[in-house]
Amino acid sequence: MAFDISRRFMLAGGFGASATLAAGCSAASTATGQQAAFPPQTTPSGNALLGPNPDIAQLSRNENPYGPSESALKMIEYAGKKGAYYAGEANLVLAQLIAERHGVSPEQIAITTGSGEALSAIALIYGPKGPIVAPRLFWDTTALYAANLGMATIDRVPLTPDMKTDLAAIEAKVTESTGLVQLCNPNNPTGLVAPADEMKATVKRLAAKTTVLVDEAYMELADDPDGNTCIDLVKEGHDVIIARTFSKIYGMAGIRVGYTISSPEIAAKIRSTAMSWISGVGLAAAIGCYNDTAFLDYSKAKIVEARDMVATTCDALGMEFLPSQTNFMYFKSGLPANDLHEKLAARNIEIRGQYMDYADWSRVSMGKIEDVERFCKALPTVV
Rank of each mutant, 00 (worst) to 15 (best):
residue 14 G to S: 06
residue 198 E to L: 06
residue 345 A to H: 12
residue 328 F to Y: 14
residue 153 T to K: 07
residue 337 A to E: 09
residue 13 G to Y: 15
residue 52 P to C: 02
residue 266 I to L: 13
residue 168 A to H: 10
residue 364 V to W: 01
residue 96 Q to M: 12
residue 168 A to D: 14
residue 278 I to Q: 12
residue 156 R to W: 03
residue 172 A to M: 04
residue 309 M to G: 05
residue 125 I to N: 03
residue 364 V to G: 05
residue 8 R to S: 10
residue 331 F to Y: 11
residue 381 T to Y: 06
residue 321 F to Q: 12
residue 231 I to Y: 08
residue 261 I to C: 10
residue 165 T to C: 12
residue 97 L to R: 11
residue 178 T to L: 03
residue 133 V to I: 11
residue 101 R to G: 04
residue 189 P to W: 01
residue 146 A to H: 01
residue 125 I to A: 01
residue 121 A to H: 03
residue 333 S to M: 08
residue 271 R to T: 15
residue 103 G to T: 10
residue 261 I to L: 14
residue 366 M to H: 07
residue 290 Y to A: 07
residue 358 Y to K: 14
residue 55 D to A: 08
residue 125 I to H: 01
residue 381 T to E: 08
residue 113 T to P: 00
residue 331 F to G: 05
residue 265 E to Q: 15
residue 112 T to G: 06
residue 130 G to S: 08
residue 97 L to H: 14
residue 232 D to F: 08
residue 180 L to S: 03
residue 57 A to L: 06
residue 187 N to D: 12
residue 30 T to F: 05
residue 240 V to D: 00
residue 73 L to F: 08
residue 248 K to Y: 00
residue 326 T to L: 05
residue 320 E to H: 09
residue 98 I to R: 04
residue 304 V to N: 08
residue 311 A to P: 04
residue 183 L to W: 00
residue 215 D to S: 09
residue 356 M to I: 02
residue 143 A to E: 07
residue 67 G to I: 00
residue 194 A to L: 14
residue 112 T to M: 12
residue 364 V to L: 03
residue 370 E to N: 11
residue 214 V to Q: 10
residue 53 N to I: 10
residue 174 V to N: 03
residue 117 E to Y: 02
residue 62 N to D: 07
residue 333 S to D: 11
residue 68 P to D: 00
residue 366 M to P: 14
residue 330 Y to L: 13
residue 5 I to Q: 13
residue 250 Y to K: 02
residue 43 T to K: 09
residue 338 N to M: 11
residue 116 G to S: 12
residue 112 T to I: 04
residue 150 G to M: 02
residue 17 A to V: 11
residue 168 A to F: 02
residue 358 Y to S: 03
residue 69 S to E: 07
residue 276 S to F: 06
residue 302 K to H: 06
residue 127 G to V: 01
residue 54 P to W: 10
residue 184 C to R: 00
residue 345 A to C: 11
residue 24 G to N: 12
residue 21 L to S: 11
residue 199 M to S: 07
residue 249 I to E: 06
residue 259 Y to S: 09
residue 278 I to G: 02
residue 225 P to V: 06
residue 354 Q to G: 08
residue 10 M to T: 15
residue 369 I to D: 04
residue 289 C to G: 01
residue 248 K to W: 01
residue 289 C to K: 02
residue 357 D to F: 05
residue 61 R to G: 04
residue 340 L to M: 06
residue 268 A to T: 15
residue 353 G to N: 00
residue 254 G to P: 12
residue 34 Q to R: 15
residue 99 A to K: 13
residue 303 I to W: 00
residue 116 G to M: 09
residue 87 A to E: 14
residue 235 K to C: 13
residue 57 A to C: 06
residue 361 W to D: 06
residue 26 S to R: 07
residue 174 V to H: 00
residue 111 I to E: 13
residue 331 F to V: 07
residue 84 A to M: 04
residue 133 V to Q: 01
residue 43 T to Q: 02
residue 138 F to E: 08
residue 323 P to K: 09
residue 23 A to L: 14
